[in-house]
Amino acid sequence: MIRPRHRAFSLGRIVAITGNTLTELTRLKVFYVLLLFALVLIGTSIFMAQLTFQQEFQVVKDIALGAMSIFTSLLAVVTTARLLPQEIEDRTIYTILAKPVPRVEYLLGKLLGVLLLLALSIIAMGALFFIVLYLREQTVLYETTRQMSTAPPEQMADALRAVRASAFSAGLLPGIAIIYVKACLLASLTLFVSTFATTTVFTTVVMVFVYFIGHLQGIAREYWLQNNSAGWITKSLLALVALLFPDLQLFNRTDDIIAGNAIPLALFLKTATLGLFYTGFYLLLAWSLFFRKEL
């Protein structure tokens, strides 16, 4: 066979690994998580019959975004943690790396597979969320029209506008995007931990710790800085902690959105960039350990 020269980097190979990872993951029935999400949504809609419509939309958004955040984070950690151990058990890590595939392509392909899965999941959850929100909105609109059938037209128009305004808002989209970025970051960090962890359980436990420390560290830091003047040692120590335990609280922008305040564009971009930076950084860390790892 006439062989083209070996390519040090090949997008085709990465795409192959990504596709393979995605296929493997989708066939693992991880989408049951989505079913759970649907149940949570439907459950909340049922029990809220007695609230005013503003309250109701508020609660639906609150619960939907909260559930999306938890479910994608969970999905990110659980699917990534078992990625490498499973490949070792199936021996596919050997057949893949015994082909002319650089290890960085392997890691990148695997991570992209997870990120794609997370994207599909969050799109599905988002769609479900918007459908539920839309259906509730239509019901409330219908009821309002019926109740106000004798009121003057302007008053009715105002009422309907109020209903529409408190249901869907475009501000929800950047909020969902940030939930996704946070999940990407967690997946990448999980991949890094799994390059030196010996078991899936260890990786998962470490990630649970990281998750809680990540959410608490912002508060702890503020408290610390209030009571201590920050010398350079403290500052670099805090920076190091922030590097290994990302401040996950930064990615919780949903409270504002639910309250109806859109995230300023600059803040959105800053948060998203930070998240992607972390994702890339952890991938590099993972590679630095995986590069010479014994398999």
Partner: peptide, 28 residues
């Protein structure tokens, strides 16, 4: 070089054909 590892299982969810296609792509 091609390698057959000790007691391979491969991805159980792939068919034989998919497995070969996947490894073929890795081989360029």
């Amino acid at each position: 070089v091609g390698f057959l590892p000790e007691s391979p299982y491969f991805h159980k969810y792939l068919t034989g054909e998919e497995t070969l296609r996947f490894h073929g792509k890795l081989g360029g």
